[in-house]
Amino acid sequence: MQNENRRLRIALTKGRLENKTVDLLDKIGYDCTAVRDKGRKLILPVGDTIEAVLAKANDVITYVEHGVCDIGVVGKDTIMEMNGKFFELVDLGFGKCRFALAGPKGRDFYSGHNVKTIATKYPNVARSYFEKQGMDVEIVKIEGSVELAPLLDLSDAIVDIVETGTTLKENGLEVYEDIAPISARLIVNTVSMKLRKSEIEELIAQIEKNL
């Protein structure tokens, strides 16, 4: 719930984005010892005014959307897949990678008249990408290593996050097209932005200065 008396609550995507954000907060001058030395705790104080909540990427969006966390740090990939209602204020610049369409090396993805099958962990991203092109595709949701699907002939291509492209290369796949660049974003609940304007704007100004 929004409550002007409690600490500003920031939801961090566990893992790399969490570490990068903590580094950033550290650089600004917040005391981050509790978060660095967290054990199994999920809610931890940062300095005297902030409280960090550690969550999975999708949940960061859910918590911020409902206003139980005021701010969130989450990848653009999750934002594109989940959508939702919040302010997307800052491109933090770290956690960089991209969404790409990839498939078996040397094949022309657009050839032939058959409806293509796309395997992905991000069905909404894949669907909206092909919708924009006015192309009908069949989408199969895969949970683990998406690269397997074209290798096993389940799909013609995949829509996935590509960072260096090593996994693709080692499995005989290549990027056909880039879909969108990805990086970590700072998101803010729409009501918190209004009710705690000065605190949030101050934090954002500090973050932008230290990026």
Binding site: M1, Q2, H66, G67, V68, N189, T190, V191, K194
Partner: peptide, 9 residues
């Protein structure tokens, strides 16, 4: 319009 305690208008 907003009220404290609800995360949307």
């Amino acid at each position: 319009g907003y009220l404290q305690g609800f995360g949307d208008n």
